[in-house]
Design a protein around this nucleic acid. Sequence first.
DNA 1: TTGAAAGCGCTAACAT
DNA 2: ATGTTAGCGCTTTCAA
Lengths: 365, 365
Amino acid sequence: MPKRPTVYDVAERAGVSIATVSFTFRRPDKVKVSTREAVQAAAHALGYVPSANARGLARGRTGALGLYSFDYLLGSTEAACRVADRRRADATVVRLDVNEDLRLFPLYVDEVQRGVELECRRRGYALMIGAGGDANGEAVVADIAGRVDGLAVFPGTVPVEVLRHIARRIPVVELSEPSHDDSLNHVTVDNVAGMRSLTHHLITEHGLRDLNFVGALDSSDNRARFKGFRSALRAAGIRPPRAPSAPCGGQRERAAVVVGDLLERGALPDGFVCVTDQEALALMEALSEAGVELPREVAVTGFDGIVAGRVARPQLTTVRQPMELMGRAVVDILVDRLARPDEPPESRQLPVQVVFRESCGCPPR
Amino acid sequence: MPKRPTVYDVAERAGVSIATVSFTFRRPDKVKVSTREAVQAAAHALGYVPSANARGLARGRTGALGLYSFDYLLGSTEAACRVADRRRADATVVRLDVNEDLRLFPLYVDEVQRGVELECRRRGYALMIGAGGDANGEAVVADIAGRVDGLAVFPGTVPVEVLRHIARRIPVVELSEPSHDDSLNHVTVDNVAGMRSLTHHLITEHGLRDLNFVGALDSSDNRARFKGFRSALRAAGIRPPRAPSAPCGGQRERAAVVVGDLLERGALPDGFVCVTDQEALALMEALSEAGVELPREVAVTGFDGIVAGRVARPQLTTVRQPMELMGRAVVDILVDRLARPDEPPESRQLPVQVVFRESCGCPPR
DNA sequence: TTGAAAGCGCTAACAT
DNA sequence: ATGTTAGCGCTTTCAA
């Protein structure tokens, strides 16, 4: 790789000053035609590509937004790496079943990310993507934060103190319900209403009364969903469980254990209301494998509306989040904050849509 | 937003020099404990986030890779924007059918991009994403090129001269068969073999002889696929068509026109071998709507292996590209070139897998 | 219309 | 172990 040409090289070759070169790129119309052509010719001949780093430095802003995400499917990364090792052309043909793939992609984060991408493009921003989940996640997020004008993060990916720290420097939006009311912007959905109306449906339409809530209450969103669940039960005069039942984190093996345990104790409820689609999908699979017929013997529902739920058998009843829209809203807020840095942080709550499919007992559609 | 603190601020507050601050961040273990703590405390108190721009400038490399992609579904962007306008919480509930969604996402580029993301993370690189399709695409790609150490592009998204230009500065890999043999690296698949073996299957297993190839020969990959198609026909003693039949670019309306025309002329072939899944899907839909029964009356096949083909009815027979792996290979090459800038450009060809599903006449699986 | 010069925030020798 | 000092490549007043 030859040394990268700079403004100086171009200036010298075009016989002008670096200021003129810079100016020519910024406002071509404000330069004499002859100089412009000379500069452009020189730039072209040299293979000049302006350094966005230097530009960003000089201007104080980079023109890029950042998205920090997370591999919620920890196991998958490892599997993917194994696959990656046989990447030569002469390697064994890779046999990943497409059904299998759908469990890994696209997930919730992927669809939100897509929204972010689309809106970034529309606004003329570049998008810097980073992800953690592993050890030095904190370093990574700081690294990204250092190269963008605004940052979006999925909840639970970055310690809140780190986020606050970053938020002192650039606008940050977190994709969750506002929990610790602070300097962060938020984009979220109406978790409570969504879960309440889903649960209400199970009770009134399908006559289910013994309902388990499956999922960890480790995020404000999950807690809101649990709240919606309890609220619907209470409204129906059913005493809601105090705590969720054991979550399996979307992992098949764990789901199998949970199901085996339940079966052994003869404690199968009327339905499992899961905090996410992934949780529900893993559970459904474990139930099926254990010989439980869905949804006849037990109903299962999810939350998110990911593709895999649409393709599963039975098709998964769920609460769909407007993921692309959420991604767009994120960018919208960030750009807005950039323009008006002194506005207080904003929280945007988007509506959800309950999608009745087969896994709750509704007929196929 | 308060003024962003810099090394100078931290240094002053910690009572050390800026070099020490920098060093403390780079090699915390090489600094006296007391100073380290002082610096970290100051940084924390100030909300200091190092500027990756300045760092990149000073170091001569950014630690980021770039991916420039493209909206192959031109119409969709517009539709998405319309949706984006009703982004307030009080807006009408958004009703996008999930089936509809799958036609837009995830597509080929999305799955490849995912591979790029995963591998970037594994290697500790940040990923800068940009996309064009609209007017100032050239500016966008230059912008991205200016902020990364290496760039990946999908074919047909950037004029080859621009690519060459950029390749003089940083390593570039194009996701296509090497066409113009130049300074670019390439990642591609065995298009010829894939299409040949798919076509061979149609001929020998299903006895189809009158086959149309659908798609534009506007890329080296597409030409290779056409070549594979012809080669299989020739091997079977069938005279291959000289040119493909009219492509519809994956657009429903156009597909409907093409089908209507064919039907009118009574010129329905035994099968349509489409250059991509999107092409095939649009065609299948048009055929179904026109009352043609698939695959009994006519077979349809695709190429790529996108999710939508798996979910379509009948399920689409196709040639699956190892998209995630391709994305990973891209990063692999880029990182390699970065380490050894003087190596000649590399081309990596990955194997494909023919997936027999229903649309060619095979039984459901 | 163009040039000179002062940074932007950080790193990396080299000194101490 | 820490400080000094040049830049890195570009933008941007301010002059000319």
